[in-house]
């Protein structure tokens, strides 16, 4: 059985829960008192992850940490269609890795601003917000041109990749960090497409779509 060391309000943990829901992979949650208990910094948790971070995934004794590494593992092991992490296509795989790296940026800016505003983390929030807007502009332009070319995901594939899931919650919760998405219409349409993926699950602050609303395209 897969066990996910998880905090419900963490974007990086949610990325794993979302992928496992989309892949219909059963798993157990091990709740970590990340806030306010700082359990991830405890000596006990240090034996699971010496870096003191969540998420951590334990798949029958195989332990992997770091959000993007866990996404790579889950998609490679549990997606028989090989579309979520397209290992057979060198160019598509490289672009997936490129946009996974991009998600490090959205996490360190947009989601950092959210931790500042909601939990009082001591970050330079104006720098976080400015950095997030720079990345959102790049993403919006990329997605806008993609729509013109018939590409609906961040990578040039007819299927979403783990890069979409790695970026999605940082963007979807940005308003909790004081970052408006009003100037990014293509990003909003892309978020709507992610929310309409079959099997999609939300988290507090990210709702699944109403059953009747159609996804927006192009």
């Amino acid at each position: 059985m897969i066990r996910l060391y998880d905090w419900e309000l963490s974007v990086n943990c949610y990325k794993q829960r979302l992928l496992m829901a989309l892949l219909e992979v059963p798993y157990e949650i091990v709740p970590v008192d990340f806030f306010p208990g700082w359990e991830h910094k405890s000596p006990e948790f240090g034996r699971i992850n010496p870096l003191g971070h969540i998420p951590v995934l334990d798949d029958d004794g195989f332990i992997v940490r770091d959000a993007n590494a866990i996404l790579v593992y889950l998609a490679t092991r549990y997606d028989p269609t090989r579309t979520w992490y397209p290992v057979a296509d060198p160019e598509l795989l490289a672009l997936t890795a490129q946009w996974l790296m991009f998600s490090e940026g959205t996490t360190n800016t947009a989601s950092a601003a959210r931790l500042h505003d909601g939990l009082g983390y001591d970050f330079d929030v104006e720098a976080c917000r400015a950095g997030a807007h720079r990345l959102f502009r790049v993403l919006d332009e990329h997605l806008w041109f993609g729509e013109r070319e018939g590409r609906h995901w961040v990578c040039p594939s007819p299927h979403p990749t783990i890069a979409d899931l790695a970026i999605f919650p940082d963007v979807a919760l940005s308003e909790e960090g004081g970052i408006s998405r009003v100037d990014y219409p293509a990003v909003r349409r892309w978020m709507d497409r992610v929310r309409h993926l079959p099997g999609f699950v939300g988290m507090p602050g990210i709702s699944p779509p109403l059953a009747t609303s159609p996804p927006s395209v192009g």
Binding site: W7, E8, L9, P31, V32, D33, F35, P36, G37, E39, G118, E175, E176, M203, P204, G205
Partner: peptide, 21 residues
């Protein structure tokens, strides 16, 4: 566990937060 008890309450509160804001 404490973590499980806090988790439940945090889910509830985090659902209210965007409504409040």
């Amino acid at each position: 566990s404490d973590a499980e008890i806090k988790r439940f309450q945090q889910i509830i509160f985090a659902q209210d937060k965007p409504i409040l804001e």
